[in-house]
Design a binder for these strands. Structure first.
Length: 228
DNA sequence: AACCGCCACAACCGCATGTCG
DNA sequence: TCGACATGCGGTTGTGGCGGT
C-alpha cells in the first residue's frame, strides 16, 4: 500500500540537534505530553520530522534516562537477554530502566560484541566460536511444558506438531543455570529457577521462585512483560 | 601541525505493526 | 474488511573526537 512520506523532507532540518531545538521539544512535551509526533514539530515550531522528534525525546531528552557508562551487571544482563531475545532491543531495553533501545544497540555493537568475541563466544549465536556445544547459555524447552509466556513452544493439535510460533528465536539456546532435574538438589542458599525467571520475568504471575536476574541493585523493570 | 584510521554514538531510513474510521 | 495513518523497531549511516604517525 502506498504511503505518504512521514514529513515534508524539503523543509526539515537534519543532523545534530541544537540546544534551542531541544529546549523547544522539551517545553512542548512538558505542556502537551508525548504523542501526536506527526503534528508535534509544527506545534512546537520545529523544522524536524515527527520521527526525528520522537527519537530525540526517547533517546536523549526523557528525564528518566540514565546516562553514563553501563555497569558490569548491566553488561551481563544485556548478554543474557540477548541470548534469549536476539536483536529485540526494545524488549531488552524494557528490562533496563533508564536505558534506551538505541543506546543498548549501539553499546552491543561497539562493546559487548567485542567482549564476547574476546571470550570466544559468537555474539549472534552465543555459542563458542570453536564449535563446541554451548556450555551455559542455551535455551531449551521441556516437551511437557504447555506454553511459555511468549507462546514459543511447540503446540500439539490432534497429535500433530506445529512449528514454533517464534521462528526468529533461536531455540537451541538455553539460559543458565540449568534445571536440576538430573542433578542434586541445590545447595542451601542456592535457588532453582522457574521458567518465568529464566526468561527474566521474575515476579510475574507465573513465577514460582524468587530467582533469576535478581540483581541487588534492583535494576530490573517489568514494565514490558507483555511481549508482542 | 597535518593527515589518517578507528571508534563511539547520534541520527536517519525503510519496513512492520497497531489503530481507527 | 479494508485502507490510511501514526507509531515503533531494527539496521545502517554520518560525523565528531581521539590517538597514532
Amino acid at each position: 500500500m502506498g504511503r505518504s512520506p512521514c514529513c515534508e523532507k524539503a523543509h526539515t532540518n537534519k543532523g545534530a540537534w541544537t540546544k534551542e531545538e531541544d529546549d523547544r521539544l522539551i517545553a512542548h512535551i512538558r505542556v502537551h505530553g508525548e504523542g501526536c509526533w506527526r503534528s508535534l514539530p509544527k506545534a512546537a515550531g520545529l523544522l524536524r520530522c515527527g520521527k526525528s522528534c520522537r527519537l530525540r525525546w526517547i533517546n536523549y531528552l526523557r528525564p528518566d534516562l540514565k546516562r553514563g557508562n553501563f555497569t558490569e551487571e548491566e553488561d551481563e544482563l544485556i548478554i543474557k537477554l540477548h541470548s534469549l531475545l536476539g536483536n529485540k532491543w526494545s524488549h531488552i531495553a524494557g528490562r533496563l530502566p533508564g536505558r534506551t533501545d538505541n543506546e543498548i544497540k549501539n553499546y552491543w555493537n561497539t562493546h559487548i560484541r567485542r567482549k564476547l568475541l574476546s571470550r570466544g563466544v559468537d555474539p549472534s549465536t552465543h555459542r563458542p566460536i570453536n564449535g563446541q556445544a554451548a556450555s551455559d547459555i542455551t535455551i531449551s524447552f521441556k516437551k511437557e511444558e504447555k506454553e511459555d509466556s511468549f507462546g514459543c513452544l511447540e503446540e500439539r493439535n490432534g497429535g500433530q506438531k506445529r512449528p514454533p510460533r517464534c521462528p526468529d528465536l533461536n531455540l537451541d539456546l538455553r539460559i543458565s543455570p540449568p534445571s536440576y532435574q538430573d542433578e542434586p538438589e541445590p545447595m542451601k542458599g542456592e535457588r532453582g529457577l522457574c521458567f518465568s525467571c529464566t526468561l527474566g520475568l521474575q515476579k510475574s504471575k507465573d513465577c514460582s521462585c524468587n530467582g533469576f536476574l535478581d540483581l541487588k541493585t534492583g535494576l530490573l523493570d517489568y514494565r514490558s512483560l507483555e511481549m508482542k
